[in-house]
Design a protein around this nucleic acid. Structure first.
Lengths: 182, 182
DNA sequence: CGACGCATGTAAGTTGTTACATGATTAG
DNA sequence: CTAATCATGTAACAACTTACATGCGTCG
């Protein structure tokens, strides 16, 4: 489905970027729903360039270091908007190793189970704390709602990530309590 | 990380199965946290066999149709239990195309946004209904809790899947209301 | 006897990860 | 000056999907 393609087009649509910029955005801002390594990004940029969806101008960083600043062509913008407007069927449920292990819970001792669940819980709580810290910094956290700025997209996906994390924590906690009382 | 390998070992550990059985279990019972096509399962079974983790006996179904009934070797059982007991760091957050599109919400019109979110909501509600119907059928739904049977694993992952779906629906609903009132 | 499900496999292609490879710039 | 970060790429491999390919069993 070439999702990476459209993720890149969408980001460049927000403003011209280099491959390195894209890498940082993927692995810092979008990491809660999409990401990619630079080794996947650079070849994809080459491909999009060949397809005529993006162009670049070479910019000098300092004396020698060349970087490629990409922007969308008209065709690129159109391709992105078509993808965005297309209604998709539900994706297959994401894979989850911890849930898989939980499915096999009968093969663990009570101690092992509690140790596994508590470790998972600690990590999830840590992650939630970081997400909530990001939310506090967010301009929209104060109740300003203007849905036609990029910040609104940032905001709703962040809210979704927090809700998802809380639910995972609730599930772990319920399981732990049930197992403890057994 | 060879997760499919351990998923298969875990399922065969519950009882001898054929490749076809595994396919059905993956795509019906485990589908909420792991799955695989038969084209991935058969080569993996071959590999596990070569590694000495599983063996099979050929069984006749009818007059001519041969099927391979797989079971774990001692080494296979050990490999599975070691994997199960190993504590893992949090996986990267699963990718999600709908959240990605939501991130780019500023490039959609209000009508497009509402249409997208409502379509997603309908599908998610449909899915939740199916999960809840499965839960009603489940022996553990009545409150019997015995954590040392395979059914307990089934039960907690199903509960987790329902909680996850409800949260997704809540998120969509909140977004829709916010956008409607804008 | 026809349709659907059982049963097993391979081939080609896409997506994503890990490792290899190189060099410039900037902040302390 | 040196470590971290900026910057761009390729190669090999692993995981996964789609399509190709075949044939038996069972139910109506």
């Amino acid at each position: 489905m070439r999702t990476l393609k459209y993720a890149i087009l969408g980001l460049i649509n927000r403003g011209s970027m280099t491959g390195y910029d894209l890498m940082k955005v993927f692995n810092m801002e979008l990491v809660n729903f999409w990401y990619a390594k630079h080794s996947q990004i650079y070849p994809e940029l080459k491909k999009l360039s060949d397809e005529g969806l993006i162009t670049y101008e070479t910019v000098l960083q300092g004396e020698k270091l060349e970087k490629k600043l990409y922007s969308l062509t008209e065709a690129g913008k159109e391709a992105f908007l078509n993808w965005l407007a297309k209604q998709d069927l539900l994706e297959p449920t994401p894979k989850d190793i911890f849930r898989l292990k939980s499915y096999f819970i009968e093969s663990m001792t009570k101690e092992e189970i509690l140790s596994q669940f508590n470790y998972q819980l600690d990590q999830r709580k840590e992650k939630l704390k970081k997400l909530e810290a990001t939310m506090i910094e967010h301009p929209y956290a104060k109740g300003i709602i203007d849905i036609v700025t990029p910040e609104y997209g940032d905001y709703i996906v962040l809210k979704g990530a927090i809700m998802r994390e809380i639910t995972y924590i609730d599930w772990l906690t319920e399981c732990i309590n049930e197992i403890k009382n057994y």
